[in-house]
């Protein structure tokens, strides 16, 4: 049993992969808990897809692919946040434009590369086993930085997410906090790219917190449970991908999806297949079966 987990770790690439998935799943769960409760899921997805443009550009120019993705993702997230605050354009339309525009530019650039390699496709579909020491350093700095920021400003983030009006009246710079959250979403997406890829990265943000939201009722507990589900999915997915030679991103996302389905069916009091403890009359309007989740 221990050999099952320890034997692969004799390889340096597996050690790096394990550290990377642990960091990425933790930060994804923490940031994702805000994402699902603020309806930012599609912003995250759009940031991920459109960052392909940055990835491809950096690749062609021979620059650092992470930095290329970052240079695209952060402005994209902030721009969508600006549109949603100013209301000049429907947010879903803005998301669609950024999503498709960036992804199309990425495909265009890639199509001009004569010999596109595994390295580039590891960003599209994820290849956690190919994380280099340099990649890991960037992932570690960004992930730990985000976790530290969320830890320090948890009160401000929670208050601004729950009730921006009152938070502003209490002297919190709500606009700054919201843009900071969007920036953290963009950073989380970028550091997760190598693990699960552009196409699937949004699942790391959404699925573990949505699972946790079925099982807990308080924000901090949802966040903690999301971290547990995220970690379990990432580590199990990594080993599955190692032993069965499967695509790591798909394996991680499918295990997270499996956890979600279990919770959706069997969550105490709220699961689809579980008898409600309370009579229907006592349940609040609109609270079943997934309060706040999935938006």
């Amino acid at each position: 049993m221990f050999d099952f987990f320890l034997e692969p770790l004799s390889f340096a690439f597996m050690q790096r992969a394990l550290v990377a998935v642990v960091l990425v799943s933790l930060v994804g769960a923490v940031v994702g808990t805000f994402v699902i409760h603020k309806g930012l899921a599609f912003i995250g997805d759009a940031v991920a897809h459109s960052s392909l443009a940055g990835v491809a550009t950096a690749f062609v120019l021979g620059g650092n692919v992470f930095l290329g993705a970052l240079a695209w993702a952060v402005p994209a997230a902030v721009l969508m946040g600006y549109v949603s605050r100013r209301g000049r354009l429907n947010l879903d339309a803005a998301i669609g434009i950024v999503f498709a525009g960036g992804f199309a530019l990425g495909i265009l650039i890639i199509s001009r590369v004569p010999n596109y390699t595994v390295d580039l496709f590891s960003f599209v579909f994820g290849n956690v086993l190919g994380v280099s020491p340099g990649d890991l350093a960037i992932v570690a700095v960004v992930a730990l930085g985000i976790l530290l920021l969320v830890g320090l400003f948890f009160k401000e983030l929670l208050f601004s997410a729950y009730d921006p009006t009152m938070a502003a009246a209490s002297g919190i710079p709500v606009g700054l906090v919201q843009y900071a959250l969007l920036t953290m979403v963009a950073l989380t997406v970028v550091v997760s790219l190598k693990t699960v890829g552009v196409v699937l990265v949004v699942a790391l943000l959404i699925t573990p917190p949505a699972t946790a939201a079925l099982l807990a009722r308080r924000f901090p507990r949802i966040m903690a449970l999301a971290a547990v589900f995220g970690l379990a999915s990432a580590v199990l997915g990594l080993y599955l991908s190692y032993y069965a030679n499967l695509a790591s991103g798909a394996a991680i996302v499918l295990i997270a999806t499996g956890f979600f389905l279990l919770a959706f069916l069997f969550a105490p009091g709220r699961g689809l297949l579980v008898a409600r403890r309370r009579p229907p009359a006592a349940s609040p309007p609109g609270a079943a079966p997934t309060p706040g989740a999935g938006s």
Binding site: A216, R218, A287
Partner: peptide, 12 residues
């Protein structure tokens, strides 16, 4: 629908 308790809200 936000996952906060009455006590959490008052603490804000």
């Amino acid at each position: 629908h936000f996952p906060v308790t009455a006590e959490d809200v008052v603490m804000m």
